[in-house]
Design a binder for these strands. Structure first.
Lengths: 209, 209
DNA sequence: CTAGTGGGTGAACGTCTGTACACTCAAACC
DNA sequence: GGTTTGAGTGTACAGACGTTCACCCACTAG
């Protein structure tokens, strides 16, 4: 009871973020109204402005939250230090599945708004995905077998992998908790990653162009 | 002047579809109002109902149109019969780039509404993409080197490729006509396809699991 | 030539939207 | 312990929304 004032504000703020996340499930941020959110939270519409300037600003906040959890995911994968390839594949896919299931609403949000959100939200998401690709590229550069790769080839490969992972996250969200469906998506992702890595390991043996 | 009645109706119908395609650029179908469309076309809101039951029904029509052009694209690629691999890669990517640039609005529409459209529209798009994956899988089965593959592996591979192509289409749409950006996306896509195919050709040499 | 079909009109409805403004009243501060 | 602060309230407005209804009147069919 020491800091009741800021605590209550934070609680309402969280309630607004959660309500927004829930309400725009099945449509999009651009179709979400300030009044719907306020009604769901149980406050009057004008009180919304005490926390956010607009729905779009709320969206940018949700992007940050979502990618905070994604970053923690990637950090987990990286922390698996010594990679046999089949081990790094299993760990990566497993961690992805776990996080997407745990924070399903956030990942569903990103997958949707990446293509359909307000322009500023789209730009923020694109930027975060580019960051993730860049981080993956620097990690790939440390793996044995990639010493001779050009930075451009590393970028292209990590774009391919990140793209496949985004697609996987999308399908996990669509599977919506059905464990067998999630299981099959995970298996598909594992196989895809193996195919890609096999191709990558052989890459320099056939010169580009 | 023989069939003026149905011609005029068809012309208005096209104008509605085009206006909808243009207006939901930058947001989404779920944020598009019947009145906006009518205003843009130059008809009164109620006249909209002479052509479509709802915005959602209009969306389903747009899905059909978009995938009609995608199918023609895939047919073009297939018609390149005898494949050296580097040739099939170049043809595929070139055809994709050409079609996406030609029908940019339709592809932007699909990329957006696939994740954010009304549920029925989303389902229709997902279904069409699954069809495309299936057709690609049967084509892959005809290539030399895949004789021993399981149907499941074929499905996984074609899902990977179609996913990468959807991602490529997305980036071309984002490049929005800047020729150098489009060029780079195309080059990235070519490299990615080569990496995937190299991996695929070596696939059976390392058993799964 | 006459009857009827059907794309488009225009006014009206109830509902929802974002935002402005003046307000309360408990917690925080000095 | 009196003053300030700020999250939440309540009312109000103008505009946009989907949908209804009765109404045109150019074209078509017979």
């Amino acid at each position: 009871m020491t800091e009741t004032r800021v605590e209550r504000k934070e609680r309402t703020r969280r309630a607004i973020l959660d309500a927004a996340l829930q309400l725009c499930d099945g449509s999009s941020l651009v179709a979400l109204s300030l009044r719907q959110v306020a009604r769901e939270v149980g406050i009057v519409p004008t009180a919304f402005y005490r926390h956010f300037d607009s729905i779009e600003a709320l969206g940018l906040e949700l992007v940050d939250e979502s990618f905070a959890s994604l970053r923690s995911m990637l950090r987990d994968v990286r922390s698996g230090s010594q990679p046999s390839f089949s081990e790094v594949v299993d760990r990566s896919v497993g961690t992805l599945v776990e996080h997407v299931e745990r924070r399903g609403r956030h990942f569903a949000f990103i997958v949707r708004e990446r293509a359909a959100g307000p322009p500023a939200v789209r730009a923020a998401i694109r930027h975060q995905i580019e960051l993730a690709q860049h981080e993956l590229a620097t990690d790939l550069a440390r793996l044995p077998g990639t010493e001779a790769w050009s930075p451009e080839d590393l970028r292209v490969l990590s774009a391919l992998i990140v793209g496949a992972m985004v697609g996987t996250a999308e399908q996990i969200v669509q599977a919506d908790g059905r464990p067998d469906a999630v299981q099959q998506v995970a298996e598909t992702a594992r196989t895809q990653l193996r195919m890609v890595l096999i191709g990558a390991l052989q890459w320099r043996s056939t010169p580009p162009a």
